[in-house]
Simulated scan of single mutants.
Amino acid sequence: MKLPIPNRIAKCLLTALATTAVAAANVQADSYQAHPQAKQFIDEMVKEQGFDRGQLEAWFSQAERKDSILEAIARPAERVKSWKDYRKIFVTPTRIEQGVVFWKENADILAKASEQFGVPEEIVVAILGVETRYGAHKGSYRVIDALSTLAFDYPPRSKFFRKELKEFLLLAKEQGKSPMDLTGSYAGAMGYGQFMPSSYRAYAYDFNDDGFTDIWASTTDAIGSIANYFVRHGWKADQPVVVPLKAEAKHDTKLIDDNLKPSRSLSEVTSAGYLPLVKMALPDPVRVIELDGANGNEYWLGMHNFYVITRYNHSTMYALSVFQLGQAVAEAYQAEQGLASTGAEG
């Protein structure tokens, strides 16, 4: 015999069912299980790359849209900083001290990488310092969440991030890792050196030869990967990077431009009223750089290796920050090593 359900209880049951339905709908909306673009992407990966459809569907049913990522990437860009302000972010006593500690802890690996690839230790250390404070801030987003959000729900750059999502799934497959386990920045950059998936597949280097290129937890692989990145972009061993210039009163400002790639001869630069403040042979081609420094305009002469640093981040100020941080860390490290040697001898 069925007993009637009191109205109050019936209302409670209906409310509970409605709440469950809404929660289920939200889960569906926040995942990429049924997203039209994700479904199309799955079709492409099955057809073009031979992925298992069921596996892809399982991954994308767990991948989550992150509004915090969309807010971060759509947020109006920070005001354009002058060099004097930009430099203060990266070339600091703390980063220099932390760089010395990192160098001491990884001296053998850094020396091995420098010998094998020809990239100075201080350049590798400085990249790590600028990118993640030597691994302290590598990013905590699941990469599949970050790249899915930007590939499928951020139209301005969906093409780029769709490509990176493809590269990410391929690298996970190649390395035998679950794409659900790998983490990075809100834009999908990964590990100590913040490699995007395409850069990982092209340049990451298994420097400890253990079968997995671990740029997330292995400083050895991170160091080798950064050094390899620079070599593959044309780094020239034992060549200068950038040197300060003195601009004469009647210097030709037409030689200053925003083109990152050097294209002028040293003789052209000196004839135009710019004098290098170093006594060393400087190779062509070169580039004249003008920046707003703490004490007024600064002038620098960038060479090929300076351009190579800008391949990591297409910014003059970024490259000069890397160079100056590296020089400061090297000086502090060498001074400390010299004091240690003196103490040992004493």
Rank of each mutant, 00 (worst) to 15 (best):
L17T: 14
A18N: 12
A24S: 12
Y32V: 01
Q49I: 11
D52I: 07
G54P: 06
L56C: 11
F60T: 04
S61D: 00
R65V: 04
A77P: 09
S82P: 02
V91P: 12
I96N: 12
V101H: 11
A107T: 14
A113I: 03
V124Q: 14
A126G: 09
R133H: 13
A136E: 15
A136F: 09
K138G: 06
D145K: 03
A151F: 05
Y154F: 07
K159F: 06
F160G: 07
R162G: 02
K166G: 06
K177C: 00
L182V: 01
S185G: 06
Y186Q: 05
M190I: 04
F207R: 10
T213M: 14
D214V: 13
I215T: 02
D221Q: 09
Y229S: 00
V231F: 02
G234M: 09
W235F: 06
L245D: 08
E248L: 03
K250C: 01
D252I: 11
D252S: 08
D258N: 12
D258P: 10
S263T: 15
P276D: 00
P285Q: 01
V288A: 03
E290W: 05
L291R: 11
G302D: 09
S315T: 00
G326I: 14
V329T: 01
Y333P: 12
A340P: 04
